[in-house]
Each structure stands twice: as C-alpha cells, then as structure tokens.
Design a protein around this nucleic acid. Structure first.
Lengths: 187, 187
DNA sequence: GTCTATAATACGATAGAC
DNA sequence: GTCTATCGTATTATAGAC
C-alpha cells in the first residue's frame, strides 16, 4: 500500500479514538513511522487536509456498510434492527462505538471549519438517503419516508452519544425497539 | 458578582462557542481581564476543574429551563413542541444551538475523562427523568415512559447535531412533528 | 519522496512578590 | 486574592539536504 493511504488509515483510527484536536501530528508520524517532511509532501495544507481525507474515507466505508445491510434485508424494519444489533455487538466487543458517526471526532470543529461541517452534512444526508429509499420501497410516500429517515439518523446519532457517556448499549437497544413502532404508525 | 462566578460564566460561553480544547486558558484570562494566578487560586486543578464547574452550572440552567416548560404545559406533547420551538427560535436568532447539549463542548473528551463523562451522563438522565415523569402523568406506564423519554433525549441530541452541521433548523422541526405520533402509538 | 533540523508559537502550570 | 515572570513541553509548520 502507498504511503498516503497508510497515513489516512492510521490517522483515521487515531482520530476515532481521541478526536481531531486530541491527536498531535507527532503521534501520527510515530505510529506511521514516517517523518514530518513526508506527511507535508502528501498533505501540503497539513493537519486539516489530512482530516478531510480521513472523513471522506470514513464516509465511504460507513455508507457502503449500511447499504450492504439494507440490501440484505427485505424491510426497513429488519434492516434497522440488524444495523443496530451490529452497532451493539461492536460496542460490546470494543467498549466503544467508533464507526457510524463523526460526532466524537469533529463536533468541536463542526461549528468552526466549513469543510469539516460539509463532510459531516454529507454523511448524514447519505445515511438518510439510504433509509428513505428503503422506506419508499416499503410503500411509504417520499415525504413521509424522508421525515422518518431524518428521525432515524438523529436517533442513532443521539443514541450513540448516550451509549458512550453512559458506558452501556442500553440506549441503542431501546431505540431499536421503538423505531419499528414509529414506522408502523405510518403504514 | 464574585470573581469565581464570573470566571465560570465567561468560560461557559467560550466553551459553548469553541469547545473545551478549542479554548485556551489565555483566552479565558483575557476575556475575564484577570491573571493566571487568580484563576489557579479559584481552580487549583486548572482547566479541567473549571470545565466541570461550567458543566455543573450548565446542567442546572438547562434542567430548570426544561422543567419550567414542562410545568407550564398540560401534556408531554405540548411541552415537547414548546421546547423544540424555543430551540428553533434560539437557532434562528443566534445561528447556533448552544444550550441544551454538552455534545459540541466535550464529545472529544467524553471517552477520555471520567468526570466529564459523568457530567454528561448526569444531564441526559436528568432530562430523561423530566420527560418520563410527564409521560407518566399523561397516563403511560413507567416502563413505556422511560423508553419514550430516552428516545426523546436521543432524538433531540441527534437533531441538534444535524441542525448544526446542516446550518438549518429543519431537522428539529421534522422531529417535533414526528415525536407526537410516537407518543400517540402508546396511548 | 523522505529525511533532519529548526522555527515560531501556544499550551497548561508553577513560584514568589505584594 | 491578585499580580508578574517563568518553566517545560506540547503544538503546527517550514527549510534545506539527500
């Protein structure tokens, strides 16, 4: 694998663990076993350019992951339950939820840096689109599907935050039980 | 007002705007027009001790604010709509949502610092309690009320995140339209 | 393309005078 | 209780050799 990709992969993991401001360039360089000159050769605009590359890489893996799940199951309800179950399994195994959200990485920057905010917005809209399309397949109108998909995106994001602060997967479990009832109300 | 309270108030505003790691001690000192020695006299353990004091102060103002709203309206549905409307008005006026959430302040620390995580957890549980009590008053069972209250807390938290990244109050509006339907499904 | 050396600055924290 | 001066140590970024 080329150096640039290796830097992105390593930095992504570190950013997920400690957040953007929580990880210094030196830590990234040490983990990658490269020098400062090499990093600035690949990312002339420094740390923020590297972050954007990491967010883009994460966006792709998260959305293809969710898309796969939503293709594998017939209804939104089944797919949603499977997705949350995967999140909970991930939480039980690793003790934290690192994928499926940017919040813990960039929330402190989201209000300051426009490129970062755009990367967040892009991911949320992409996720929402996957949910909405499936709900339309289920027979809901485009408008209703969009609303529920937005609610799902918000509930997941908030649910992950609750799990992280309470050190428990219980919030996501409760949400997975309630979301189907919300969908049924429209069918 | 005494110096200590003034420091807490000023630091709270700065943390809300730029996040914990985004605000340096020097910026706080300059805004307060005090010296380093004064700050460390009131907060011997430095920046993190100051943050905890700010979170505690915010917790109190947020929960009394929500409690007031929930006392003023008869049903959870009305109170919820009023609360979200207030959030949206606040967003339209100031262009951002600074109250009602810690996420944008401490999410990068929530996984690292136990005292910070506890402060977050405390606020979420307090909010959830307010919602749950009102839902029990509405006639729901304790168990159902707890579940819906958790869902509300998560949806608000996620909804705020969506509003901030998309620079729009639309997500919270949609959530305020959907939450009543979720409650009705149980009545 | 990668390295070393270095710059310039900001950080949190401490010591001691008043 | 507040001040000034200072200490280490981080930070991001750059220059120039190879």
């Amino acid at each position: 694998m080329d150096t640039k990709s290796m830097i992105i992969d390593t930095a992504t993991t570190l950013f997920q663990q400690k957040g953007y401001i929580g990880v210094g360039l030196n830590e990234i360089l040490k983990t990658c076993n490269i020098s400062k000159g090499s990093l600035y050769h690949h990312f002339p605009n420094g740390k923020e350019e590297l972050l954007i590359a990491c967010l883009k890489s994460m966006s792709e893996s998260i959305t293809t992951d969710i898309e796969d799940i939503f293709k594998r199951y017939q209804t939104t309800q089944e797919a949603t339950l499977a997705m949350i179950e995967k999140l909970i399994e991930n939480y039980n195994r690793e003790g934290s939820i690192s994928g499926y959200t940017f919040t813990s990485i960039v929330s402190e920057l989201a209000t300051l840096s426009a490129p970062v905010r755009n990367a967040c917005s892009y991911l949320y809209i992409k996720m929402q689109g996957i949910y909405s399309n499936k709900l339309v397949e289920d027979g809901l109108s485009k408008e209703t599907a969009d609303s529920i998909a937005l609610m799902m995106t918000a509930a997941f994001e908030g649910g992950i935050m609750l799990c992280l602060t309470q050190k428990s997967s219980h919030p996501l479990k409760v949400i997975s039980q309630l979301l189907p009832k919300l969908m049924k109300g429209f069918q």
